[in-house]
Write a protein that binds this DNA or RNA. Structure first.
Length: 222
DNA sequence: ACCCAGGGTCATA
DNA sequence: TATGACCATGGG
């Protein structure tokens, strides 16, 4: 094995080691916390820069109003939609995004039609919808369409930096490549790994600044 | 009182 | 392409 290949093998082992530690520490996360694919999508948009606890309230409001379907959201007056999702913050902006999504969905009839696209086309299509950026698009592909795409979020970046693994460039794609080039391409693994990173990020990285109690502390170069 | 959450868009340089 | 203002609620 050449030097390059050896380095890559080591990185792959490290990423798997991190995964197994998190899994042992927290257990399976059973993501995404939603009853169906459409609820995943609504949650992915509502959780943008918002605490999940507030998103849960907004989703709960939508369910109580029996409006958590594409057709119902299309029929819902804008102001009423905005009011229902108020707890998740940025409610006018997010009401606009939800409307944009369900309007675009008409082209494919339903989610099944949209998800019939190959992964690359699906990603491009999602990115072209107002309010859907890279993280939201990938969350939808992984957790709603159940296709193997690794989701990168703020927690993931923070944890990788702390482990001294942050890629050069610092871009979304660079972080994503780090995972996909060094892990088996499995939807189940990507699903659980990202969920665990988020769990770990919430649990430890903010509350315990230097990771003193962190299950990854001996992997930290700091 | 202040900080920031499982981001994204848009205007500007 | 890169930065900054803006979107807004609720819990720590």
């Amino acid at each position: 094995m050449g030097g390059k290949a050896k380095q890559k093998a080591a990185l792959s082992d490290l990423l798997l080691e991190v995964y197994h530690r998190l899994l042992a520490r927290y257990g399976p996360q059973r993501w995404w916390p939603a009853e169906d694919p459409f609820e995943v999508i609504v949650g992915a948009i509502l959780t943008q820069s918002a605490a999940w606890i507030n998103v849960e309230q907004a989703i709960s409001n939508l369910k109580a109003a029996e409006t958590l379907t594409p057709a119902a959201l299309r029929d819902l007056p804008f102001d009423r939609l905005a009011h229902l999702i108020r707890p998740s913050g940025y409610y006018n902006a997010k009401a606009m995004k939800l409307k944009a999504f369900v309007e675009r969905l008409r082209r494919y009839v339903d989610l099944e039609g949209l998800f019939a696209l190959d992964t690359q086309s699906l990603r491009q299509e999602l990115l072209s919808i107002h309010g859907v950026g890279e993280e939201t698009a990938d969350s939808i592909i992984l957790y709603a369409a159940r296709k193997p795409v690794f989701v990168i979020d703020a927690y993931t970046r923070r944890i990788l930096r702390r482990l001294g693994l942050a890629p050069e460039g610092d871009s979304y794609r660079a972080f994503q490549t780090l995972f996909t080039e060094n892990l088996p391409k499995e939807e189940g693994l990507y699903n659980e790994y990202h969920a665990l990173l988020v769990r770990h990020g919430k649990e430890v990285c903010r509350k315990v600044p230097l990771c003193l109690l962190c299950c990854l502390r001996d992997l930290c170069p700091y």
